[in-house]
Design a protein around this nucleic acid. Sequence first.
DNA 1: GAAGATTGAGTCATCAATCTTA
DNA 2: TAAGATTGATGACTCAATCTTC
Lengths: 152, 152
Amino acid sequence: VRDLCPIQQEAFAAYLMGAKVLTQRVAQRMAAGSGLSFEEYDVLVTLEYDPSHRLRMSELAERALLSRSGMTRLVDRLEAQGLVARQACPDDRRGSHCVLTEKGRQAREAAWPALREAILELFGEAVGEDAEAVARASRAIAAGAQACSARA
Amino acid sequence: VRDLCPIQQEAFAAYLMGAKVLTQRVAQRMAAGSGLSFEEYDVLVTLEYDPSHRLRMSELAERALLSRSGMTRLVDRLEAQGLVARQACPDDRRGSHCVLTEKGRQAREAAWPALREAILELFGEAVGEDAEAVARASRAIAAGAQACSARA
DNA sequence: GAAGATTGAGTCATCAATCTTA
DNA sequence: TAAGATTGATGACTCAATCTTC
């Protein structure tokens, strides 16, 4: 990524590398502090912030940027720990709902301090006053790529 | 990532999500256009930009943010395609050098247009005038996390 | 036939253990 | 004993195929 269009390729490489390191470090600290993986935490939060605390498997997969089969297995793991439960859909017997349990809500809450610490340590200081620009750009990237994915 | 310190957690989530989507999309286009994975491309470029076009396995692993065993296997795949070669270290018989072949150099060059297109499409437009801030922040993140990793 | 969810096969990452050399 | 590199075991993801229901 070092041949042409110097600014963008540099930014791109640094962005990806930064994200890679961040993800790894945060995941390590999360696992050490709470036993939850970052993806698992993400699913629990997504469920928690839904008004009915339940979502279709496909909806979860889409939001977490995971394949359907990946989400099936992730929910398998969460269900084995009792953090979520599967329930049949009343209106569509093909599908199933993933429901957040009280234990899952507690686990999410318990994991937050470790995650927050990791974010502040690894992200907060480094980003500093660029935080807003980074957030804006990141949202634009994610939105653009998702739109691009929807087209396909 | 939605409980406290709103700016940073938002930025963090968007950052990671953006990076995830970007990586996936770019990897897809790369694979379709050139047959190289992004990691493979990264190794080839790293070797190409070294003056002697050769690096120790550990050095490669460190630069690519991969574990030693991961790099062993990645180089296995590249070597099977004839894009790099392993050579014994003259001064340290424990180690081995990974050397870029002419075929590898050509493959790297041939893969660049597809990668460039993917970068411009997915990254360039979305980032726009925030490119510099994003690049600065990303470099700081990567550097900070690597220092943190070196401490450990 | 198409869509939601799951399962099987394959890929690629990691950690821990091993082998060789310093 | 420690360090460089590899190997074995394991985990988590993907794609393709399957099963059920629309």
